[in-house]
Amino acid sequence: MTEKMTIAQALNLALDDAMAEDPKVVMLGEDLADNEEGGVMGVTKGLSTKYGKRVRSTPISEQAIMGAAIGASLVGYKPVAEIMLMNFTTVAMDMIVNHAAKLRFMSGGQTHVPIVIRTMTGAGFSVGGQHSDYLEAWFAHTAGIKVVAPANAAEAYGLLLSSIDDPDPVLFIENMPSYWTPGPAPTRGERIPLGKARIAREGKDLTIVSYSRMANEALAAAEALAEDGVDTEVIDLRTIAPWDQDTVIASVKKTGRLLTVHEATKPFGVGSEIAAVVNEALFGDLKAPVKRLGGAFCAVPFSKPLEDAFAPNAQGIAAEVRSMLSLDPVD
């Protein structure tokens, strides 16, 4: 694959293709029409010009945005709602958790909520404690909403199309600091199924399970470890909820060792759930205790050295792998 594209471009392309394919796909969110610059990061540029009233900028009213998306979805539309930053989902939690996630069940299957909530986040941008959090565990813990977090451009495209197709609500998490990182370009129209993980690198000594930007850090760690003869398998979960247990269990059965890595704080995180399921399935096959890496247990700090130390990185991941394999640390 020689063609490159940024995540921001891939998202724009996926939204464009979805809207062209299905007139029921509509979009709403703060600043996303061209009159307001096509999104604060320009991800939705051109779409309102092309699709007119199907793409609407809204006031700063996250509850109203989510409610409108839910309502329209109940009667046949497929809204893609943007909540600019993941921290602002907190303002719309009632709509997302009590309504979007539960209406199918509580209505006995009479109604359902086929919406996508696009939201961006991630430490590294010096924006501090209310603009950087990964909150996926809250949503993964809620029955009825799916959670997706792509790691690169091609993945973002294929996963967004599948999220829009999906008959249930999907929270789609975009890593903001890597929006402009060029990566493999997607194949037009090609979906990546939800609930299916990607083996980003095959290996036999240890399995790392990760997602979003951290999957790329894990890959970088694996490349560095390979130079020392350590063969790491890296699994990019892609869909956090429901996650691909089969692929992960098969991998850990092969390697006997599991390390989970995410940017969200470690306690009560997605890694804890994966560790528990793998322990239940493979207790006798494990060669080492399952380990978890995650962000520090604090608000994302502003000060640069603290922010740099907040999330796991390739170096820290490699060090953890070496320790799990009882290898001497490198410095």
């Binding site: 010096s126 924006v127 404690g129 608000a299 000060s303």
Partner: peptide, 16 residues
């Protein structure tokens, strides 16, 4: 500037 001498020890930053 994110320094420890700041109002919030640099932990909050300009928005906080």
């Amino acid at each position: 500037a994110g320094r420890v001498t700041g109002t919030c020890k640099g932990k909050g930053g300009p928005m906080h």
